[in-house]
């Protein structure tokens, strides 16, 4: 920690991208965000592969975790999308666990939260948006465009409603990505700010020990809060993906 003596808090420096894996990573611009993505994917695969290896009738802890993961997402898909939801189970599962492990890994010190970059959350939500639109077009063909004109609208209002519905449909991209990005970034900025308080207040001597301890307590609480937000945001992203897919499959 270099904050001792310095009077400014560098809360955003933690989101700076640097290259990982030494000279090899530097030559292909392989950043630590890419590294964490690979780690998150490997952890997801590892959970399923190692967890399901025993294939026990009565599952052990690890197998129970893997089965619970499978069943939770399957239930989310079937509840959210309907019977057709089973088709979309793999994509929802992948999205959920990619985001979940990315968020959870970010809580560890020295690790990087790739979901705190809007470039990544925006790519995820654009992917979901394109998927939803393609599914809707495949299921309903050109009839899909009736989605933008709710029933029972007087003819005069129709152009206005189409514009509003179109904007509302497009705004999903922004709301889906900004929600995840803002939650992850805000949490990490708060952690950084309170951690800086500990060091700065602890540095000014006897008077600072009590507020420094208080900041430590707050920071400990924030870590727990961050774990909650990490899981909750992954869940919200997956649930919203299901809701959008439901709209695509059923058109209301």
């Amino acid at each position: 920690m270099s904050a001792e003596g310095s009077s400014s808090i560098d809360a955003l420096g933690q989101f700076k991208l640097t290259t990982a894996l030494g000279p090899i990573g530097a030559s292909v611009n392989f950043t630590q965000a890419n590294l964490m993505m690979i780690v998150a994917s490997v952890l997801t695969l590892g959970l399923l592969w190692l967890g399901m290896r025993p294939r026990a009738m009565v599952p052990g802890r690890f197998q129970a975790a893997a089965e619970l993961a499978y069943e939770t997402i399957m239930k989310m898909c079937v509840d959210g999308i309907g019977h057709e939801g089973k088709k979309f189970f793999p994509i929802v599962f992948t999205l959920f666990f990619f985001i979940l492990f990315g968020n959870l890994l970010g809580v560890f010190p020295y690790f990087f939260t790739f979901n705190s970059h809007i470039a990544i959350t925006l790519s995820l939500s654009l992917f979901v948006f394109v998927l939803v639109t393609v599914v809707a077009l495949r299921e309903h063909g050109l009839h899909f465009f009736s989605y933008f004109l709710p029933k029972g609208i007087p003819g005069v209002l129709a152009p206005l409603m189409v514009a509003i519905e179109l904007i509302s449909y497009l705004s999903r991209i922004i709301s889906l990505s900004v929600r995840l990005f803002a939650n992850m970034m805000a949490g990490h900025v708060m952690l950084e700010v309170f951690a800086s308080f500990i060091v700065m207040l602890g540095g000014i001597g006897l008077l600072g020990y009590f507020p420094a301890g208080l900041s430590l307590v707050v920071n400990t609480g924030l870590i727990g809060f961050e774990l909650l937000v990490a899981s909750l945001q992954a869940y919200v992203f997956a649930v919203l993906t299901c809701i959008y897919l439901h709209d695509a499959v059923h058109l209301h």
Binding site: S171, I173, I174, S175, V178
Partner: peptide, 12 residues
Amino acid sequence: RVGVELVSAMVV
């Protein structure tokens, strides 16, 4: 969530 929805529609 309400804030994000309002702002994102406006941004689009």
